[in-house]
Simulated assay, not measured.
Amino acid sequence: MRLEHLQSALSIAASIIVGMVGWSGHVLLLPVALAFPILWMLARTRLIAAFVAAGYFLAASWGLPQGVATFYFSDLRPGLLLWLCASLSFVGVHTILWTRRSCTRPFRYLAAAVLMTIPPFGITGWAHPITATGVLFPGWGWWGLVAATAGLMGLVTRAWPAVIIALAGFWLWSAAIWTEPTLPEAWQGVDLELGASLGRDISLQRHRDLIATVKGRVSGGSRWIVLPESALGSWTPTAERLWIKALQGTDISVIAGAAVVDSGGYDNVMIAISGGGAQLFYRERMPVPGSMWQPWRPMLAQSGGARAHFFANPIVTIADHRVAPLICYEQLIIWPVIQSMLYDPDVIVAAGNGWWTKGTPIVAIQRASTEAWARLFDKPLVFSFNT
């Protein structure tokens, strides 16, 4: 019994290490997460499988409590509560589907992986091992996703040592030749360091400062300038007129985040602006649960909160570009990027407002995840973040 307890303790400790290392924000370390299915398989009981899943997920998302505390200017308690609540779907799915039967285990794990990809469980489907596909099989596209899925199933069979050796070979080869996603021609992402004021300061002076920043960043033939999530604050007719007038006489087009507010709540959106006009072209499919998306409000006869447009606008056409937008939280989960790739976009545009994540690896994880998907499908990628 003591040996079994020691083995179980080591499995749980290993799952914590796997979660922290795999999701440290370094793209080439994402394949470390592939050790999780092995640890899940090796659990001796359903309870140990639950602890292994909890250790992995909580370690992978350890920055959440601190980030929530910073966002709400509070202590760690609200963040800890959200952290634990978010883990329930991951732990619950992997606990219920765990089995001792080796013949059905690969299909059970496949079911768990699929459930953590799509809503409702996929809403908190962070730290999904399938994200490592772009590191293992860069440029393979959908065939890479098939190969990685087969690999994940193989990791929960008796043949797992051979499977892990094969995947490690792909990992080492990829790391040796790794290149970052290309920046599309004439596009440029602008990173800002405006902290919590971005999106909250909606004065005309802030808009003028952003316009000056855009014009100052135009170089080397860049025509499409991307600003972070919430850069424009609450989008109003006054702000629209100011931006259009400022861009008249130039060939600059700006893509920036904003909020469109009405009596029922708001949409987190991206807007394209040029001297010829402005176009609201994207409404966020999955805002951050809890802090932004609050689905319980209508049941309590309350308004407010961001709306989720789960499967809407996977790609948008701007001029002659087919764009796959990903705003902040959408870069951490699976179905938005997979849905967008079904439509074969020309470029991925990833924007975020991560000032509240200071001291955590959350923004680095967002970047690493998006970079891995861009490399898998060989798509140009534009980043724009505020910190």
Rank of each mutant, 00 (worst) to 15 (best):
L3E: 08
L3H: 04
I17K: 06
V18T: 15
S24E: 07
L29Y: 08
I38R: 08
T45D: 11
I48K: 09
F57G: 09
F57W: 15
L64Q: 10
L82I: 12
L84I: 08
V93R: 11
T95Y: 04
I96W: 12
T99C: 10
S102K: 14
R105A: 08
R105H: 04
P106K: 01
P106A: 01
F107N: 03
R108G: 00
L110Y: 00
L110I: 02
L110N: 02
A111I: 10
A111T: 13
A113K: 05
V114K: 12
L115F: 09
M116E: 13
G125R: 13
W126A: 04
I130W: 06
G134Q: 04
V135D: 00
G141P: 06
L145A: 11
A150L: 15
A150I: 08
A159F: 08
I164T: 09
A168F: 00
G169T: 01
G169F: 00
W173A: 12
W178F: 06
P184V: 01
G189C: 10
D201Y: 05
Q205K: 13
R206N: 06
R208M: 13
D209R: 15
A212D: 12
S230V: 12
W235E: 11
T236H: 12
E240H: 10
K245W: 00
Q248A: 12
T250Y: 02
V260T: 13
D262E: 11
D267V: 10
V269P: 12
I273T: 11
Y282W: 13
Y282T: 11
P287V: 02
P295D: 01
R297E: 08
L300G: 07
N313E: 15
D320K: 15
R322W: 04
V323S: 09
E330S: 01
P336M: 07
D346T: 00
I348R: 05
V349T: 04
A350E: 10
G352H: 03
T357E: 03
V363Q: 14
A374C: 02
R375G: 05
F377K: 07
F377N: 02
D378R: 12
P380V: 00
V382G: 14
N386W: 08
T387R: 15
